[in-house]
Measured scan of single mutants.
Amino acid sequence: LGLPKMEVFQEYYGLPPPPGAIGPFLRLNPGDIVELTKAEAEQNWWEGRNTSTNEIGWFPCNRVKPY
């Protein structure tokens, strides 16, 4: 089972920042694999864990694709 995984195809370094105070941003590099921890199809921002860095944070969902 486990959490859904997504592959990063466009880098994200915190700009634009996540809206409001939902949480810290998650740095993404192309090729990184992100395990989704909070993701809803109608939301533009998802939370996940970058398996390369083990960091957890928020990122724009348009930077990832199904793994």
Rank of each mutant, 00 (worst) to 15 (best):
A39S: 13
P60G: 02
V64F: 01
L1H: 03
N62S: 11
P30M: 13
E40V: 10
K5N: 14
Q43I: 08
V64Q: 01
F9I: 15
L3Y: 13
P60E: 03
F59Q: 01
W46Y: 14
I33Y: 05
E40D: 15
W45P: 02
G20W: 04
P30R: 15
E11R: 06
E7V: 06
W58R: 03
Y12H: 00
G31V: 00
G48Y: 04
C61Y: 10
L28M: 13
W46S: 07
P60L: 03
M6V: 11
I56S: 07
P19V: 05
P19N: 04
L28V: 09
L26F: 03
W45I: 02
E47R: 10
I56C: 07
L26T: 03
G2Q: 10
W45A: 01
E7P: 02
F25K: 04
L1A: 04
R27L: 10
E40P: 12
N54V: 02
F9M: 12
I22P: 09
E42H: 15
R49V: 08
R27A: 05
G14M: 04
P17M: 09
P19M: 04
P17Y: 08
K65C: 06
F59L: 03
R27D: 07
K38P: 07
T37P: 04
C61T: 11
A41I: 06
R49Y: 13
M6Y: 12
G31N: 05
G31R: 08
G57T: 00
G14P: 00
P19D: 09
V34G: 01
E7Q: 13
P60Y: 04
V8G: 04
A39D: 12
Y67W: 15
K38Q: 13
P17I: 08
I56F: 05
A41G: 13
V64D: 01
E42M: 13
P4T: 15
V64H: 02
G23V: 08
W46L: 12
P17E: 11
L26Q: 02
R49F: 05
A41N: 14
S52M: 13
P24S: 11
P18K: 02
N62F: 04
V8M: 03
L26I: 10
Q10K: 09
W58F: 03
L15V: 14
F9G: 07
P17H: 08
F25Y: 11
W58Y: 13
K5L: 13
N54M: 12
P30D: 08
P60F: 01
T37N: 09
I33C: 10
N29R: 15
G20H: 12
A21T: 05
N54Q: 13
N50Y: 02
N62M: 09
Q43K: 09
K5I: 09
T53G: 03
V34S: 01
P30I: 15
P19Q: 04
P19A: 08
L15M: 12
R27T: 12
V8W: 01
C61P: 06
I33R: 07
L3A: 09
A41C: 14
P16F: 03
P24N: 08
Q10D: 06
P18V: 06
N29G: 14
Y12R: 01
Q43D: 14
R63G: 04
A39Q: 15
R27M: 08
R63W: 03
I22H: 10
P60Q: 00
T37F: 07
P17V: 11
E47Q: 14
A21R: 11
I22G: 10
A39N: 08
F59N: 01
G14Q: 02
T53L: 05
V64C: 12
N29V: 06
E40G: 12
P18I: 02
G48Q: 02
L1E: 15
R49H: 06
P18N: 03
Y67E: 12
K65H: 09
L15W: 10
E35A: 08
G57H: 00
V8E: 01
N62G: 12
S52N: 10
A21M: 03
D32R: 02
V34K: 02
I33T: 13
E7I: 14
E40W: 08
F25W: 12
P4I: 14
T51A: 09
E11H: 13
P18Y: 07
L26E: 03
E42T: 12
P66F: 15
G2L: 11
E47W: 07
G20I: 03
Y67H: 13
R49G: 02
G14T: 01
L15T: 15
G57A: 04
P16D: 04
A21E: 11
W58Q: 00
R63Q: 04
I56V: 14
L28S: 03
K5Q: 14
I56T: 09
P18H: 03
E55V: 07
E42C: 07
V64I: 06
F59D: 02
A39F: 14
F9W: 15
L1T: 12
G2R: 14
